[in-house]
Design a protein around this nucleic acid. Structure first.
Lengths: 179, 179
DNA sequence: GTTGCATATGCACACAGTTGCATATAATCT
DNA sequence: AGATTATATGCAACTGTGTGCATATGCAAC
């Protein structure tokens, strides 16, 4: 029951179609809650049935028709209810950690680790660009912007941690190899 | 397709019953791949059908019968195959980050953040105790032990990062409140 | 003696997420 | 003219996870 709320958050910022949301999920909210367009369309129908959102069909020229969804007052109340509810800690669930724990082949772990590190660095770069672009003066932020910035900070912390871990692994495994 | 492999890793260390595995998952492998006993029993059946594990029933006195599972050579081969396969990066999926991003009520976020911080600290303590107990001299570790230690290091990094994030949030939100 | 806990195994339903497929318009590129 | 890309929406099947329920033994505490 959290994709619903991620969508509500996104729609509370601005009304959007399923397609728009799918793109937003690829770029911003999706950093913290990834979702495919199929999933988004399915959940949007469900949310409309619950009365959390309403839709209007727009005819566009040069493009297919577009169903734009907007948050309703019921949806807004639900968002309030959810925000007040304590969030439960997401469990760590890492394929890679299990693989490390099993430790069969040092070579494939090294390759994996280097790839992961590059991946973390790439993501970190995206986050930092986003931070520089949207929140250049963090001390002046208030309300929603402050929250969004702090969420982004979480992403940045997470990538930095991932990189530190990879470096620690490389330090210990590459050292062993060369000996 | 990863609970299977987490179980294979665990069984490759020592044969076990579903019940044993459930307890191990609560304590060690489960740090990186949580699983309930129901899920474990279900997957064990599936794995036996695939020939990855074999079982023997043991009659115990004073306790219900026990089905002990051991890894087969097929299972070992599967573990090798899986270890060589590149692991895909687990996506960040955080309810809390979405809530921050939405930022409705600063008070409930503060409560949430303090709880999360305490939670991270608790988990960190467990990891550090485990580290002190099982891997007191990391530089001397080799093979499986080195891998298990590096996995644990990942957990430690992750908790430290979580704590740092919480502190950053508190710094910014508590500051705002008092003004 | 009965309540609760640890041991031990499992079914069934619900819900969430992934993947593959399907369809349609229109602009741009080759 | 044909291919690709972007816009736009959705169904269906499968897989994985979570939650509740069911059952059985035996020990220890109250």
């Amino acid at each position: 029951m959290a994709l619903e709320h991620a969508i509500l958050v996104s729609l509370s910022e601005r009304a959007a179609s399923g397609y728009d949301l799918a793109r937003r999920f690829d770029a911003s909210i999706g950093f913290f809650w990834p979702a495919s367009h199929q999933q988004i369309y399915r959940v949007l129908s469900r949310m409309q049935d619950s009365g959390w959102i309403s839709s209007t069909v727009q005819t566009q020229d040069g493009r297919p028709d577009k169903k734009t969804y907007a948050i309703t007052s019921t949806g807004d109340a639900e968002l309030d209810r959810w925000a007040a509810e304590p969030s439960n800690r997401e469990a760590l669930r890492s394929d890679f950690a299990v693989k490390l724990r099993g430790f069969r082949d040092s070579e494939s772990i090294l390759i994996d680790t280097r790839n992961r590190k590059a991946d973390h660095e790439q993501r970190l770069k995206e986050y930092e660009e986003s931070q520089a672009k949207f929140y250049p003066v963090p001390t002046k932020l208030t309300g929603t912007d402050l929250g969004a910035w702090l969420a982004l900070r979480g992403g940045i912390h997470s990538e930095l941690q991932g990189i530190a871990w990879c470096e620690e692994i490389l330090k210990h495994l590459e050292g062993r190899e060369s000996r």
